[in-house]
């Protein structure tokens, strides 16, 4: 038996909006520690890892570990029927072939339940080791989204370089080229506006902008984003989800032939 009650139901709506275009089908894994998902896009270039910790739910009951295969397009259709202020409860029976989403309006005067069929998904789980990254950049998520959007109008790929001078985003295409440099700044009044660069070693990696732009659909989940980079490793683009967890996107770099 599984019963997870999330008071801020809009978080789940936002999570689905952030990942449904990247991944079609995914297994949601439920355990004592939380509600999680790991899934790759169909080309195995990008991976999303979601964690909603059990202590972030108002009520969390998960009698045994459960893996529920869901079509994210269909799940998103159902969650769109929840109001932004609604409390969302996810319910499932052990060994059942469906999951129920229950939506309660804040004043409790409207209660809906939507039952969705589960599916069997052969999941390919990647073991991602804990790594010390060469450079970690924390910046406003809206700024990162803006840069990715702007640069994708010029080119298809971006070179992200971190040095002691700051983080540089470069692209080039048929019409020309562009560079955006963000320097470390410290905002006294608002930590969310800060750009903070921790660098042990300069690092420069090339990525497809199409994927980064897809990741920025998670911008509504967090005011800040963290980019963790090491030479010859996928970048980690992380959005913290207030008080409850995180959504991490991994993107394999372009490799020089």
């Amino acid at each position: 038996m599984l019963e997870l009650r999330l008071v801020q139901g809009s978080l789940l709506k936002k999570v689905l909006d952030a990942i449904k275009d990247l991944v079609t089908d995914a297994n949601f894994d439920c355990s004592e520690s939380g509600f999680s998902l790991q899934a790759m896009d169909s080309s195995h270039v990008a991976l999303v890892a979601l964690l909603l910790r059990s202590d972030g739910f108002e009520h969390y009951r998960c009698d045994r570990n459960l893996s529920m295969g869901m079509n994210l397009t269909n799940m998103s259709k159902m969650l769109k029927c929840a109001g932004n202020d609604d409390i969302i409860t996810i319910k499932a029976d052990d060994g059942g072939d469906s999951v129920t989403f229950m939506f309660e309006s804040p004043s409790q005067d409207k209660v809906s339940d939507f039952e969705m069929k589960l599916m069997d998904i052969d999941s390919e789980h990647l073991g991602i080791p804990e790594t010390e990254y060469h450079a970690i950049v924390k910046m406003p998520s809206a700024e990162f989204a803006r840069i990715c959007r702007d640069l994708s109008t010029i080119g298809d790929t971006v070179v992200i370089s971190v040095s002691k001078d700051g983080v540089k985003f470069s692209t080039s295409g048929d019409i020309g080229s562009a560079n955006v440099v963000c320097r470390q700044n410290n905002s006294v009044d608002n930590k969310d506006n800060e750009t903070v660069i921790e660098m042990n070693e300069p690092v420069s990696l090339t990525f497809a902008l199409r994927y980064l732009n897809s990741f920025t659909k998670a911008t509504t989940l967090s005011n800040t984003v963290t980019l963790s980079m090491s030479k010859e490793l996928p970048v980690v683009v992380e959005y913290k989800i207030a008080e409850i967890g995180h959504i991490r996107f991994y993107l394999a770099p372009k490799i020089e032939d």
Binding site: M40, G127, T157, T206, L233, P234, Y250, A252, K254, I255
Partner: peptide, 14 residues
Amino acid sequence: KSSQGRLESFFQLS
């Protein structure tokens, strides 16, 4: 010239 890396080249399938 560069080519797109795949995640399996960096992480192990489990």
